[in-house]
Computed example of a mutant assay.
Amino acid sequence: MSHPNRERADRILDAAGELLLRMGYRKVAIDDIARAVGIGKGTVYLHWRNKELLFQALMMRESADLTDEILAGIKADPAMILPHRMISASFLVTHRRPLVMAMLRGNAEMFGSLGDLALRKQQDELRGQFEDAMLRHGLIRPDVPNISYALQSATLGFYLGDSMSGEFAGIPLEEKAAALAHLIRSAFEPAGEPDPLAVAAVADELSTALEALVSGYRNGIYAHDPTRAPG
């Protein structure tokens, strides 16, 4: 059963997310968040002792929810872990989350000192693990020079393209994702059909890593939960 204090924490995070998108990190005060939820400022501090911890919890929750979407996709179809499918699916779910998009684009005005979250480090480690598993199981070409750099640059271009120029703003998101999938498939994956056993092995390995990531995030979100015993 969900606890009323946990529900209140989620309401605080919801309000913080809306205010963050509207005003930016520097301008949002705990007062504004409390007012939006209809509670006193002291109640917000019961959950998080300062603004930075509150917004870190918000980004952890965003990342956990996004990762859960990816996990559900892999459970429904293990072939979702093939680089072209995984990368284009992540592109789509990320674009549906304005907070994650802003974090990815390093929007300093919006995030202030939160730009360098530990989340980034975890995601970089996960990306390394993903590439390593793909190479070990022959799902990615071994002959691409500087594979990590090439993959990341190819992918990032799709995230940053619109902010560089308005020229392609009219292309629907699904078509952009399809173009990204085509690029990754043709440039980075071996020709022919992937080995189903390799796909199953990587899906298993990656799901385990993603589940551990989500559970770490979920614990971190409510780390200062007032329902927990002190200590």
Rank of each mutant, 00 (worst) to 15 (best):
A169Q: 14
L104V: 07
L180Q: 06
R8L: 15
G161K: 12
K41C: 07
N146G: 10
A64K: 03
D116C: 08
L206W: 10
F91V: 04
G24H: 08
D143L: 07
S113A: 13
R97N: 14
D195G: 02
A154W: 02
A179Y: 07
L13G: 01
L183C: 01
F111E: 01
R228F: 04
S63K: 03
G106W: 09
G42M: 08
E52F: 09
L139C: 03
D77E: 12
D132E: 15
A108P: 01
A201V: 07
A154G: 05
A150G: 04
E7T: 08
L13N: 01
P230N: 02
D132I: 02
V44T: 03
G17N: 05
H182G: 14
A198E: 00
H47F: 07
L46N: 15
G231W: 04
L117H: 09
G157L: 15
R136W: 00
E62F: 04
L58W: 01
E62C: 13
E193W: 04
M1N: 05
E205L: 00
A108K: 11
P190I: 06
M60L: 12
G38F: 00
Y25G: 05
M164H: 13
A34F: 06
E211F: 06
M86N: 12
S2Q: 12
R22N: 07
I12F: 09
A223K: 09
K41Y: 05
N146S: 10
R22L: 12
E205Y: 00
